[in-house]
Amino acid sequence: MAQTKRQGERTVFFETPPRVISSASIVGDMEGKGPLAAAYDLILEDDTWGESSWEKAECKMFVTAVKLALSKLGWSTDSLQCLLGGDLLNQIVVANYAARELGIPFLGLYSACSTMAESLLIGSMLIDGCFVERAACAASSHFSTAERQYRYPLEMGTTNPPTAQRTVTGVGAVILSNEQAASGYGSEIFTKIHITCGTMGKVVDMGITDASNMGAAMAPAACNTIKTHLADTHRAADYYDAIVTGDLGRFGSEMLIELCLDEGIKISKNHIDCGNLVFGPNQDVDCGGSGCGCSAVVLSSHLLKLLETETWSKILFMATGALMSPQASLQGETIPGIAHAVVLERDN
């Protein structure tokens, strides 16, 4: 029996940490007017991108983001042994149809808005386990496809409650590789970033039922994962230059900081949230951004660049997801939350 790579309750350490070598991000018009505009690879002015439906447009974004991340390396889709990813729509159709076009072996994932972290975690396990050498991890969401699935039709004249968040239109793709396979090509975009460990999330439900207050529903799951991760790794919160959550938004972040304080963990200094980064203060989005694409585009544009350019050396990337469906909500179910985390480190 090989020795376990798990440490503590549910944190895995990679023996040969996989490399993050390339990434790409595509966003919609509104995100392109946000504070991270300069970091995105492609900003769509028209979020149907010439397609006949928004679902088709989201799929095209997914395909293009993966190809773009590969083309930065001079690679083609044949270079990958696995594509991991998902989106928010029923049966994760966007990722399914994108995988049909890409032709890469595909492991479809659904973990709501925490899909990006889940795919990085599983992708790293596959590479460290020598099952594949190179893999792509991607997640997508689209305001106009998510809105009609989870809320009201776009043209409905209703007012959002102040705790609502706006689904990000965007796809983020990240290419992972083992050490040998990466160095063989020599043109990688990121040369120093490794994924060193990760913590699997547990489903946590504190009984929030308000589907327009997702940040508050997911914050307890995020707190649970942070607490377990720090205990498993025997680290303190200030070990990381940044603890990045996916889409808690302004109110969810406030709740997370509060919950962590209750557990004796102080994260107010180094906590940032992708949902707060993706839109500016003068953009009318209530509590910030949300959706699979939110953490995916912020990671694959902004966060990886900050790591590579030596602003940061270690971050905990933890995307959060709300695992309900519209039917479950109508049946009076509460909203279960989950948070998966991976640690991204730059070599010194």
Binding site: P162, T163, M206, G207, I208, N213, A216, P220, R250, F251, E254, M255, E258, L259, C287
Partner: peptide
């Protein structure tokens, strides 16, 4: 927690 959320949610 639900009580806290209720109190602190932006109104």
């Amino acid at each position: 927690y639900r009580e806290l959320v209720k109190q602190r949610s932006p109104k």
